[in-house]
């Protein structure tokens, strides 16, 4: 029996956007915590910390997110620790986001001039105070634009979680598409919903970067 692509189907797909948003928020929040740790380890004086962070980044930037999702979901099950799609998708996306945010933020931290570190040392600040009060606040301002840009990438990347049966926007679209046999209309709707979610953020990122550039050029 072929279902109609009617209002109910549109509502079903549109409501699935909340899982896309929720998964994006989880991935971003977890990725931010992990990313800050990775970034600080990357700029550490201790070479072992740098190496560990580097290896982490290489692995997660060097393999497709799809493989990471597969490994988290099916891999854990094979190892005898079956986890639900929510957990698998969250873990994989958090690690993915941590690797990319870590590398973005490392660049932002390194963009703070050496003189700032030195001035902070000279007024007696140790590592923690130096980072917290002098370096990170300045790195943060540099990071706002690229971080928002990455958030857009992350929202779109959550669509891959559909492959492990996580019912977010894309998966909801697939389900309706299979039932209605109207893939063009359904997938177009899904694309429009992603666009509505991402476009304002891209615009915001561009504005923030423009604002930052104006504030830093004399």
């Amino acid at each position: 029996m072929i279902r109609e692509f009617g209002p109910n189907e549109v509502i079903y797909i549109t409501l699935a956007i909340r899982y896309t948003i929720l998964l994006s928020l989880i991935a971003f929040a977890g990725g931010a915590v992990g990313g800050l740790m990775v970034a600080l380890m990357r700029v550490s004086q201790n070479k072992y910390r740098r190496w560990i962070a580097m290896a982490f980044i290489r692995v997660f930037q060097g393999t497709p997110l799809l493989m990471q999702l597969f490994l988290a979901y099916f891999g854990m099950a094979i190892l005898g620790f079956p986890i639900d799609p929510w957990t698998a998708a969250s873990v994989a996306l958090i690690l993915h986001a941590a690797a990319f945010l870590g590398e973005i933020w490392r660049g932002c931290i390194e963009a703070v001039p050496t003189g700032q570190h030195e001035a902070a040392r000279v007024v007696g600040l140790g590592y923690v105070n130096r980072m917290r009060h002098v370096v990170l606040p300045q790195a943060f301002r540099i990071a706002v634009g690229p971080t928002t840009g990455f958030l857009v990438q992350l929202i779109k990347a959550t669509s891959l979680a559909s492959i492990i049966g996580f019912t977010e926007l894309t998966r909801a679209g697939q389900i309706i598409s299979n039932a209605t046999f109207q893939p063009f209309a359904v997938i177009s709707l899904v694309a429009v919903l992603y666009f509505i979610l991402c476009w304002p953020l891209s615009k915001l990122a561009a504005n923030l970067e423009h604002k930052f550039n104006q504030a830093t050029t004399r």
Binding site: P113, G115, Q116, E118, A119, A120, V122, V123, G124, L125, G126, N129, H133, V134, P137, Q138, R141
Partner: peptide
């Protein structure tokens, strides 16, 4: 030992007063 640099190296995200009290409050 206090130090003054060629490029000033003031903390750009803090006011003049905040620049001056950061060290005394956090380090001393």
């Amino acid at each position: 030992i206090g130090m003054v640099f060629q490029q000033f190296n003031l903390f750009p995200h803090m006011t003049v007063l905040e620049n001056c009290i950061l060290g005394p409050v956090k380090a001393l």
